[in-house]
């Protein structure tokens, strides 16, 4: 009888969710919502890291937005993010499809290869920058330059030439970041019903035709969502660049996140840094809203 009543009072799947959600919601408020509001407030103030705000002011915002360096930083950030988004996804997609094909054909070494790509993923960003710094070392005994020397090429000014430094930063990021896209695309590709490929085979469709007519259309949503995730991740990347080039030479590799970090923690310009942090936040959130929009698209079709 009591058991029956217990069941009636609290049937499965019923109950108050809020006590359960309290810790998570409190953390969201304390560590995300309130800090973001505080960033907005600081952006309209004249606070520095050592002196509190004395009142509302637009001076900091005007100063930082008028800083000629910002234009350069934003251009670098746009290039860095755009190139990475394309390169990371092409690499991730190719590897995922190669692995799926290899698994289907029973090729050896697929698991080992996947492990290798994943191993690069868990290397700390700072270590990533330091390791690639050793590889890009421009001394005659540096890895890549001494290898190129054997082929009669180089030496390449990997880190001292402003354009090359950005390419080097992209290569280092590609090494570490490919694994994420690989996992997403591997999951999406495995989610496509095999029967579709059997039909394609019966129709004697070639590999390229099969890729264009089945794989690509059915992975479109995964590619769209992943583009956004990878853009935001790349936008927020800065520790590997800090360790690789420090943003140099000059400002050649100083992306928005690194510029924000330098403004707050080296120049101690809190108000200016808050404006930059707000830019970073707005860019990230705009991209995130894109995900929501893409996700809704699925419900409609």
């Amino acid at each position: 009888m009591t058991a029956a009543r217990a069941l009636r009072e609290r049937p499965p799947g019923q109950g108050q969710p809020w006590p359960w959600l309290l810790p998570a919601v409190a953390v969201l408020a304390l560590f995300y919502a309130i800090p973001v509001l505080d960033v907005v407030r600081l952006a309209f103030s004249d606070a520095t890291l050592i002196a509190p705000a004395t009142g509302l002011s637009l001076d900091a915002m005007r100063a930082i937005l008028g800083d000629p360096a910002l234009r350069k930083v934003l251009a670098t950030t746009a290039i860095f993010v755009a190139v990475n988004v394309v390169a990371l996804q092409l690499a991730g997609l190719s590897i995922a499809l190669l692995i799926v094909r290899g698994e289907r054909r029973g090729l050896k070494g697929m698991a080992a290869f996947r492990t290798l790509v994943l191993a690069a993923w868990v290397v700390p960003g700072i270590a990533n920058g330091l390791i690639w710094g050793l590889l890009f070392d421009e001394a005659p005994y540096g890895t890549l330059n001494s290898l190129l020397g054997y082929a009669g090429l180089g030496p390449v000014a990997w880190l001292s030439d402003p354009r090359m430094a950005l390419v080097s930063a992209v290569i280092a990021n590609l090494w570490q970041g490919t694994a994420f896209s690989m996992i997403v695309f591997y999951a999406a590709r495995r989610g496509i019903p095999p029967v579709l490929y059997e039909v394609a085979e019966l129709d004697a469709a070639g590999p390229w035709r099969t890729f264009r007519s089945i794989t690509l259309p059915l992975m479109r949503r995964a590619i769209a969502v992943n583009s956004v995730l990878v853009s935001v991740q790349t936008l927020n990347t800065f520790d590997s660049i800090l360790a690789l080039t420090g943003g140099g030479p000059g400002r050649a590799t100083e992306v928005l996140a690194l510029f924000t970090f330098n403004t707050v923690f080296y120049n101690l310009d809190l108000a200016g840094g808050a404006v930059l942090a707000l830019l970073l936040f707005a860019a990230g959130m705009t991209l995130t809203l894109l995900i929501g929009w893409i996700g809704r698209d699925r419900g409609a079709s």
């Binding site: 995300y32 935001v232 942090a277």
Partner: peptide, 21 residues
């Protein structure tokens, strides 16, 4: 709640560390 949790993952720790510090 679930979308909010996904969205906050997009916020760089750099943004929240400015006030947290």
């Amino acid at each position: 709640v679930l979308v909010g949790l996904l969205a906050v993952q997009m916020i760089s720790p750099l943004v929240i560390l400015v006030p947290l510090y």
